[in-house]
Design a protein around this nucleic acid. Structure first.
Length: 570
RNA sequence: CGGGACGUGGCGCAGCUUGGUAGCGCGCAUCGUUCGGGACGAUGAGGCCGUCGGUUCAAAUCCGACCGUCCCGACCA
């Protein structure tokens, strides 16, 4: 492709509405343009990269036995009613009414639709199956952001597995795990597989693939010495036990005028260290109130609360609701002598004595509280949020916590869809058994963006070879110089014939502009051809990633490019 | 959904407080000089000032409503 004929609208300035590096570079580099919030047009460069990402994904899923389908984007709402997800996913589902008055859903994902096709599976002999497609998804995200990282219309590869039992599911799951690792590796990302919350969708187990990034939305706790890594939503740690002093025979109430926070009580005369206080939170779990108790210096992990109580809607009670339930305001709450409310306590409070907590009367607290004696805890759970610096639960290493981008998520769905949609086969005894499903997603555009987050410098994008829109850019310093254009055309032809994707920068621009653009759009190798080098029979190679430059004899240019590509692939 | 900011040529912005001919940089077009790291000069094209309504002799500017975009939070199989 000649750059002079290509549509590559690069921009000198960062777009005003971009924050994330990948967003800025994709727009500045002429890869895409925004149409509306969370919806982007892919320009030629963007589409080339997108196609390459899809090709890699397809290759890896095919390699573990995947069969490619193409299921519709338009779904009848009735199928979504059968699984109940029209309710649970209501906030992101986009739909419209057709001319007959029926509701049509723009597919946010395809479990229901693949499962519908799978009703044709009737015998155990037909299993296992691994089906997938690469399709546009629509999700009305409340807040699209960061360019391609969080959008409302995007492409996803989603695969689904169908097995006779959980052993089969485990095998398919492990194969996907391997395929996904290879995919992220080829996309130039160091993805960590972490255990995740499977959410409210009846999943037994799920693994997320996370790439470290400042613009990530999920936090991961990872051990610096072993391979422990988990989404903060499920992460645990080992904490040193705290020695409590001798207790009292019963709690003692004392006045604490103006004390409203854990920190206030720490410095209050007669107060207590935060790790010797009990924090009392009031939550509504699917509308039902519950008291949640934590050590004073610990933070609640709401997802753990939701998972452990099987709740869909979890939220902190409002000030008014708190007062109605406990008769005091936040800052003076406690669970001592509370009767008739569901009380959940974090494991870290087990056995603690002589603790200080609110007295359920404004401006009063209790000291000398023995949890097991004085509080009617109904359930003990792991509920707190792990913090950086704590000890790894698996070894004696230290945990670090950092933001990440979720680039893939794989689920063991189990028999949820089989139960809802009647997926079953007859086994060898003629008994009807439910089909065990798994589902496995990768967002194509999000992975493009995540790859940029992981592969860029102050000059622009640094694409991994496999997904670069072009392998090589030939920068013709003086396109009006006859010898320059002859040599560049010759090298261009030779490389193209060898299957190399080359962008020939023959624009009538100053060299600086061309160098800057080539670096911005991130082509892995630049060949600079100008009169100065040609005089001594050479062209210049400049590697984007290392910045390394070297002169190469004209005659060797093409073969050296092939060697470079070869080396980069291995 | 709560909080905040912003909407002015293709891009980035000023002008609005104090109403009166719409401006700057980049980019774009033509010509000339340049030409191995974002050149210079000359000339020129390009704007329903987000939309609707109100106030006024007169609105980019004041008032109201709406729409849109971004950021923080909530949310996110």
């Amino acid at each position: 492709m000649r750059w002079s004929e290509a549509f590559i609208p690069t921009l000198r300035d960062d777009p005003a509405d971009a924050e994330a590096v990948s967003h800025k570079l994709l727009v500045r580099g002429g890869y895409m343009r925004q149409l509306m919030a969370g919806v982007y047009s892919m320009l030629p460069l963007g589409q080339r990269v997108r196609a390459k990402v899809m090709a890699i994904i397809k290759e890896e899923i095919d390699s573990i036995g995947g069969q490619e389908f193409l299921l519709p984007q338009l779904h009848p709402s009735t199928i979504w009613e059968e699984t109940g997800r029209i309710e649970t996913m209501a906030d992101i589902i986009m739909s419209f009414e057709d001319s007959k008055g029926g509701t049509v859903i723009l597919g946010p994902t395809h479990e229901e639709i693949f499962a519908t096709v799978a009703t044709e599976l009737t015998s155990y002999k037909q299993l296992p199956q691994l089906w997938y497609h690469i399709q546009t998804k629509f999700r009305d995200e409340a807040r699209p952001k960061s360019g391609l990282l969080r959008v409302r219309e995007f492409t996803m590869k989603d695969s689904y597995t169908f097995d006779v039992d959980f052993e089969g599911l485990d095998l398919q799951f492990d194969r996907h795990l391997g395929a996904y690792k290879r995919i992220f590796d080829r996309l130039g990302m160091d993805a960590v597989a972490v255990r995740a919350s499977s959410g409210a969708m009846g999943g037994k187990e799920s693994v997320e693939f996370m790439v470290r990034s400042d613009v990530g939305e999920d936090e991961v706790a990872a051990c610096s010495s072993c391979d422990y890594a988990a989404n903060l939503e499920t992460a645990t740690s080992t904490l040193a036990a705290i020695e409590d002093p001798g207790g009292m025979s019963e709690p003692e109430r004392f006045a604490t005028p103006g004390v409203r926070t854990i920190a206030d009580l720490e410095v209050f005369d007669g107060g207590a260290r935060s790790d010797r206080q009990i924090k009392t939170l009031v939550y509504l779990l699917d509308g039902e109130p519950a008291l949640v108790l934590l050590r004073g210096d610990h933070a609640l992990q709401e997802q753990k609360l939701a998972d452990t109580t099987q709740s869909i809607e979890v939220r902190a009670a409002h000030a008014e609701e708190i007062n109605n339930i406990l008769g005091a305001d936040a800052g003076s709450l406690g669970a001592v002598a509370v009767d008739g409310e569901r009380i959940l306590a974090d494991e870290q409070l087990r056995g603690r004595r002589a603790m200080t907590t609110g007295a359920n009367a404004n401006d009063f607290h209790l000291r000398g509280v023995d949890i097991e004696r004085d509080i009617a805890v109904n359930e003990w759970h792991e509920l707190r949020t792990v913090e950086a610096g704590e000890s790894c639960p698996n070894c004696d290493g230290v945990l670090e916590v950092f933001p990440t981008i979720e680039v893939g998520h794989i689920f063991k769905l189990g028999t949820f869809y089989a139960d809802k949609l009647g997926l079953s086969v007859l086994d060898e005894n003629g008994t009807m058994i439910p089909i065990v499903m798994g589902s496995y997603g990768i967002g194509v555009e999000r992975n493009m963006a995540a790859s940029i987050e992981a592969n860029h410098d102050e000059k622009g994008i640094v694409w991994p070879i496999e997904i670069a829109p072009y392998h090589v850019v030939i920068t013709v310093v003086r396109p009006d110089d006859e010898r320059s254009s002859e040599v560049s055309a010759a090298i261009y032809d030779e490389l193209t014939a060898a299957g190399v994707e080359v962008l020939l920068d023959d624009r009538k621009e100053r060299p600086g502009v061309k160098f800057t653009d080539a670096e911005l759009i991130g082509i892995p190798l630049r060949i600079t051809i100008g009169p100065r080098g040609l005089e001594s029979g050479v062209v210049e190679f400049a590697e984007r990633r290392s910045g390394e430059r070297r002169d190469v004899a004209i005659a060797n240019a093409a073969s050296e490019v092939l060697a470079f590509l070869e080396a980069a692939h291995s």
